[in-house]
Amino acid sequence: MSIGHTLLGLLESGPRHGYDLKRAFDEKFGHDRPLHYGQVYSTMSRLLKNGLVEVDGIEAGDGPERKRYAITAAGITDVERWLATPEKPEPYLQSTLYTKVVLALLTSRDAADILDTQRSEHLRSMRILTDRKRKGDLADQLICDHALFHLEADLRWLELTAARLDKLREAVTR
């Protein structure tokens, strides 16, 4: 999962301090793994260097860092591209997909689109596996089946999420 894209996406709704970004990330996505502040710092530096964000202003205060970041037009395009690109179907994909969906909802993009695109990608993989299975021997079939079932589980999750998009939007934009 790409922290950089996620933070970028969070900035889309408006400029934030680095600490605010960490809090927002933790609240929306970091349920079991809060983000380390150093990670935010290093990521933002990289984004700044790549011209995807810019410093909106620096405030004096108690903390070590009071920079306020804002997303650039190049940053928005980058988020856009990231969201539209389906993930390579692989196990334990949910957290990335989840992040993408939530971000899409937060930035008023079409989350269903993301899910459909992803499903199409999954199906593409499944077609390849199915085809290999039809041509292969029993061992091939069993191996393919294992992969197919995992992909199917992902797909089911996609379906379920698609069915619950309205509720999710309500929850994350509250």
Binding site: A112, D116, R119, S120, E121, L123, M126, R127, L148, E152
Partner: peptide, 28 residues
């Protein structure tokens, strides 16, 4: 079908949601 494993026997799929269709091949 609503089953992915069955849909995997197809050449391509279209998705119907709320009465509207999406042809996935043309989107990608």
């Amino acid at each position: 079908t609503h089953e992915a494993r069955v849909a995997a026997y197809s050449d391509r799929e279209i998705v119907v949601r709320d009465g509207r269709s999406r042809d996935m091949e043309r989107v990608v």
